[in-house]
Simulated assay, not measured.
Amino acid sequence: MLVLPDEAATLALGAALAAVSPEGGLAVHLTGDLGAGKTTLVRGWLRELGHSGAVKSPTYTLVESYQVAGRRVHHFDLYRLTDPEELEYLGLDGYFDGTALCLVEWPERGGGMLGSPDLSIRLTVAGEGREARLQGLSEAGRAWIAALANRLEMND
């Protein structure tokens, strides 16, 4: 578990995850209550990759796509999804094609349509700050967490 005392720490975690991200297509599931910091984490991630524009939660569009640092990144927010079958209309195969980084908020709303992620991040409110629990669910995800741990140790 990582303690994130403020928004800056959540942004910094997103940046650190981006800095040590493995190459290739990866899926990350971001879970937590409303206001837990999922979009803030994604904002830090995208800024680290070089995106300088606005990063807002794609609550109504369901997905925002970015081309940054020579990489395609798709940011999903499934909060308003009423039925997992609605994802069929999005053309998920085109996003989860094995080459892009897919960051998915509210993945539980997608039912079994999304498959297993490489990395799962659960954010919870803890007083004025947040707590983050990361779990690698693939070989790439476990290597990612190890690289993150090494990076965080070097910054202490």
Rank of each mutant, 00 (worst) to 15 (best):
Pro107Thr: 14
Thr31Asp: 15
Arg109Leu: 14
Val68Ala: 00
Val104Gly: 02
Gly91Trp: 12
Glu108Gly: 12
Thr10Ala: 07
Ala27Trp: 14
Thr82Asn: 11
Leu101Val: 11
His74Lys: 04
Trp106Met: 08
Gly35Arg: 08
Leu103Met: 15
Gly98Phe: 13
Leu41His: 12
Val28Gly: 00
Leu30Pro: 06
Gly112Phe: 15
Ala100Leu: 06
Thr39His: 01
Val104Cys: 04
Arg80Tyr: 00
Phe96Trp: 07
Ala16Tyr: 10
Ser21Glu: 15
Gly70Pro: 10
Arg43Val: 02
Gly32Ser: 07
Thr99Lys: 05
Glu48Tyr: 01
Ala27Thr: 14
Gly94Ala: 10
Tyr79Asn: 02
Phe96Thr: 02
His74Phe: 03
Tyr95Phe: 15
Tyr95Gln: 10
Glu85Met: 13
Leu11Cys: 06
Ala16Gln: 11
Tyr60Glu: 01
Asp77Cys: 03
Ala100Pro: 05
Ala12Asp: 09
Val63Gln: 02
Tyr89Asn: 13
Tyr66Arg: 07
Val55Pro: 02
Gly111Leu: 12
Pro22Trp: 08
Thr10Val: 13
Pro84Phe: 06
Asp97Met: 13
Ala18Val: 01
Val68His: 03
Leu34Asp: 02
Gly25Val: 01
Ser21Cys: 14
Thr40Lys: 14
Thr59Ile: 07
Leu92Phe: 02
Gly111Glu: 13
Thr10Phe: 02
Val104Lys: 03
Leu26His: 13
Thr31Arg: 14
Glu64Gln: 05
Trp45Gln: 07
Ser65Val: 08
Leu78Phe: 12
Thr10Gln: 13
Ala15Glu: 08
Val28Lys: 05
Pro107Ala: 06
Gly91Asp: 10
Gly112Asn: 15
Ser65Cys: 08
Leu17Cys: 05
His29Tyr: 12
Ala18Met: 11
Val104Phe: 09
Tyr60Asp: 04
Tyr95Cys: 02
Glu105Arg: 15
Glu108Asn: 12
Leu34Pro: 02
Ala27Tyr: 15
Gly14Met: 00
Gly91Val: 13
His29Lys: 11
Val55Met: 07
Leu41Asp: 03
Asp77Lys: 02
Val55Arg: 09
Val28Pro: 01
Ala16Cys: 08
Gly37Ser: 11
Gly91Cys: 10
Ala27Ile: 15
Ser21Phe: 12
Leu46Thr: 06
Gly98Asp: 09
Leu103Ser: 11
Gly70Leu: 04
Val68Ile: 06
Asp77Leu: 08
Gln67His: 13
Gly25Ala: 03
Ala18Asp: 00
Arg71Phe: 12
Trp45Thr: 05
His74Met: 03
Val73Met: 00
Ala19Val: 04
Leu92Trp: 03
Gly112Ala: 15
Leu81Phe: 08
